[in-house]
């Protein structure tokens, strides 16, 4: 199946926004993020700070690769690999029964506790990345296509941010009900 090139480009631009804002937040609050990485307890505690810097740097480069889709054709697949890795860590901790961990996602999804909702979100994101990496047809694109790409990416990012806000509101609402 071949897709119109705009689909892949819009998805790449969306993930570029997601990864760049995420990396920015992680690098800005790197000590807090190191604490988050330590909290997940999948690495020796001594590695937490180095690992957190590595994660943020990888995210930064993924964001840049996706911003210029021609430069690194495999960028969506690299993004999918990264997403799978963090989702695996998420699932490990959910299976341990720990939901009180800070997600540490950063960017549009800052200040969230981990939940199965996040796993579902990441599965959806993964499918989108798969679409972006899928083979697309070639056609001449003009300024209208550029506008459409930007529009689609910005709108989707807005929806993504709103969905994340709602995900992070939910545990607070629950907390009020029980207090």
């Amino acid at each position: 199946m071949s897709l119109d090139p705009i689909v892949g480009k819009a998805i790449s631009a969306l993930f570029s926004l997601i990864f760049l804002t995420g990396a920015w937040d992680k690098l800005r609050d790197r000590h807090v993020f190191a604490g988050v990485v330590q909290g997940y307890e999948v690495l020796p505690a001594a590695w937490a700070f180095a690992a957190s810097l590595l994660i943020a740097t990888v995210e930064l480069f993924l964001g840049l690769f996706l911003l210029f889709p021609g430069a690194v054709p495999a960028a969506p697949w690299l993004g999918l690999g990264f997403l799978s890795m963090v989702t695996a860590v998420l699932v490990i901790n959910l299976l341990r029964g720990r939901t009180d961990l800070d997600c540490g996602c950063g960017g549009a999804s800052a200040d969230q506790q981990i939940s199965w909702g996040l796993v579902a979100r990441n599965l959806g994101l993964g499918m989108l990345l798969g679409l972006a990496g899928a083979h697309s047809t070639l056609r001449d694109t003009g300024w209208a296509d550029v506008l459409l790409t930007i529009f689609a990416a910005v709108t989707a990012f807005g929806l993504y941010a709103a969905a994340n806000q709602l995900l992070s509101n939910y545990p607070r609402l629950r907390q009020l009900e029980f207090s």
Binding site: L166, R172, L176
Partner: peptide, 24 residues
């Protein structure tokens, strides 16, 4: 219109979040 609606939805969700922060 869609862009405007997305902005409005996000603003609403954010404001709900801020209310939770204020009362907690």
């Amino acid at each position: 219109l869609v862009l405007g609606l997305v902005a409005a939805v996000f603003a609403l969700a954010r404001q709900v979040g801020i209310i939770y922060e204020r009362i907690a």
